[in-house]
């Protein structure tokens, strides 16, 4: 994995999401189904803007601390700030805002863990920035690859003060 470029930015967006409770392995098994549910909802409600809409995975808990069966992970999709959403099924709306350290990565699926490790161990813990009490997430700048060795652009957002 190449060392990422890291920027510090204020990020403010509104998302729709579906939340999963359980281990990360179980989340990965369910994520395609969750994505399809979000995508159908977004399509039916004209929420998708080509070239602008992004998909995110939000990690609300930490596997060091929360039991695997209680880990909460949300699959989210950015939506315009001004539309009225009628929340149905288990789809909710969430506002994400604040300051973030953003690692800009070009990585393949097996490199995600090292990318997260890098952001916490090398960047946050050894750097000057102070963590903010909010959830981190990854944002898929380009579509995540379907093959194990293909790379895509993914940004990792770490909330900071």
């Amino acid at each position: 994995m190449e060392k990422p470029n890291i920027t510090i930015e204020n990020f403010n967006t509104r998302v729709i999401y579906v939340r999963f409770k359980g281990s990360y392995a179980a989340f990965r098994k369910n994520s395609r189904k969750m994505f399809n549910q979000l995508f159908s909802f977004a399509t039916a409600n004209n929420l998708i803007i080509e070239g602008e809409t992004k998909v995110l995975t939000i990690y609300h808990d930490n596997p060091f601390i929360t039991h695997a069966e209680n880990l909460r992970t949300s699959l989210a999709m950015t939506i315009p700030s001004d539309v009225v959403i009628n929340e149905i099924e288990d789809i909710n709306v969430l506002q994400i805002s604040g300051k973030y350290g953003i690692g800009h990565f070009e990585i393949s699926p097996p490199e995600y863990e090292s990318a997260w490790q890098y952001m916490y161990q090398e960047w946050l813990f050894k750097g000057e920035e102070k963590p903010r009490d909010s959830f981190p997430f990854e944002l898929y700048v380009t579509e995540p690859p379907k093959r194990w060795k293909e790379k895509s652009f993914t940004d990792i957002y770490i909330p900071i003060e």
């Binding site: 601390i65 929360t66 813990f125 963590p131």
Partner: peptide, 9 residues
């Protein structure tokens, strides 16, 4: 759980 994450990091 949230406070435990915060105090650990």
């Amino acid at each position: 759980e949230r406070s435990a994450i915060y105090l650990a990091i």
